[in-house]
Amino acid sequence: MTEVAAFVAWLGAAVIVLADSRRGLAAGLAILAVAAAAMAWSQGEQGGAIVLLAGGVLAAALRFTIGPDGWGLMQPGSTPRLLFTIIAALVALWVALAVTSGPSAGIRFAALTVLVLLGGRLLQAAEPAVMLTAIAGIALVLGFVSGDGIASYSLAALITAGVSAMPAPAPPHPRGT
């Protein structure tokens, strides 16, 4: 189950990397939330999984309503991003399987690939909705890697939903103190 969840997590992060509009971003966040919940469930954290899923789905629903209109998936000029999703996954897979060891290779792969993909998206994007979705995804990953039980799952779910509820930023302001 963890291996499937890890692949789904990569898919969710890849969709966030490849999307430029609210529907695509919401879909990516929802997929990532399902994967994060599945990973928490596989670790025996059923309560955490439910909380994470609820937070992630709420965040995806909010993102569906806030941001540039449309799906914006794989728009012209997104080939470098597509290559990035594949190369990051291959490197993360190598690190998770060959370089590191521990109880679950799936969780290691998911954490690495999602953090690298969404970190890259944060550096590349200029649209607030995209940046907020990427950081919401990072919060989901922090939920299952920080290891504080229900506290970390709950905080991650709250932050994911809260970040996605942020309205579009105000325009630049004149001089001030």
Partner: peptide
């Protein structure tokens, strides 16, 4: 540190 980083994330946003 995981919880610290989540709170930091909130402050950043």
């Amino acid at each position: 540190l995981g919880l610290v980083v989540m709170i930091l994330l909130l402050l950043v946003v």
